[in-house]
């Protein structure tokens, strides 16, 4: 892989089988076996033949409707899901913010959850100790809240703390899934500022967002995914325009078949 690339995705497909049973249990499996029946399943093609290069220091936006395969793609890049076909090569350390409060325990204080969230993200204890005050300051929690259980936090406070933990890592590659929706307008501006700072440090950022303004404001490239395939890649404004037209008209661009 060329040194200037942070991520290379080659003909990636992710397919998985989901059970149509309400719950997979030993009891059901034994009953099916005794009746010589097969499990009712459905094949989901979450990502289909996607090829993409992401250079170091770029900010890539990913847009698409629900079920387009955006989150599955992010999980595959992070090494959480395995490809069914093709391969993903990642050059650098990854931090993910795919959901808010991952690793958090609502019964514990904000300070305890910074430790848990930081360890879950891959920081070590020394790094967490060094960054705790910085994280608490970035999350802008009201006085004393850092030592209260996070179940007493508002959703905005919870989101801000989660975001602050994730971006404290300064990873080579940061994967964000709708995380910028955390907090109020002031915090969003602060988050954008942090994103710009990470970009200036030549970090690579991938953002999945339904907030299209986020994509045009922050990203230098964007892709549009639809039903697991990449429909288009280009400048964020063009991709967002095409996607908006699709949302209004409901038809894909004529060059869809070529992608």
């Amino acid at each position: 892989m060329p040194d200037d690339l942070a991520i290379r995705i080659e003909n990636l497909s992710i397919t998985y089988k989901v059970s149509l049973e309400a719950k997979r249990t030993m009891k059901n499996a034994l009953m099916r076996a005794s009746l010589k029946q097969k499990e009712r399943t459905r094949i989901i093609e979450a990502v289909k033949g996607l090829t993409l290069d992401v250079p170091h220091g770029s900010v890539l936006g990913i847009v698409g409707s629900n079920g387009a395969g955006k989150s599955t793609l992010m999980r595959c890049i992070a090494g959480i899901l395995s490809p069914t076909e093709g391969r993903v090569v990642v050059n650098g350390k990854i931090s993910t913010l795919l959901a808010l409060g991952v690793g958090f325990n609502p019964a514990l204080s904000g300070r305890d959850n910074i430790i848990l969230g930081g360890l879950a993200s891959g920081l070590n204890m020394d790094e967490i100790a060094e960054k705790t005050d910085e994280i608490a300051e970035f999350a802008a929690l009201p006085d004393g809240f850092i030592d209260l259980p996070v179940r007493t936090y508002s959703s905005g406070m919870y989101g801000r703390l989660s975001f602050a933990v994730a971006v404290s890592m300064t990873p080579d590659i940061l994967l964000l899934d709708e995380a910028l929706s955390a907090g109020d307008a002031a915090f969003k501006e602060k988050s954008f500022e942090r994103m710009r700072q990470l970009c200036a440090e030549a970090r690579t950022i991938l953002i999945v967002s339904h907030a299209l303004a986020t994509v045009t404001d922050l990203c230098d490239t964007a892709i549009w995914m639809h039903k697991g395939a990449m429909v288009a890649k280009g400048k964020p404004e063009e991709i967002v325009d095409g996607y908006l037209k699709f949302l209004n008209v409901g038809s894909l661009p004529s060059n869809y078949e070529d992608m």
Binding site: P83, T84, V88, G122, M169
Partner: peptide
């Protein structure tokens, strides 16, 4: 500041597996 430096390889390859 890389995380887990020295353990997780800098280049990771994710491929299909059985």
């Amino acid at each position: 500041m890389p995380v887990n430096e020295g353990f997780v390889p800098k280049i990771q390859v994710f491929e299909p597996h059985r």
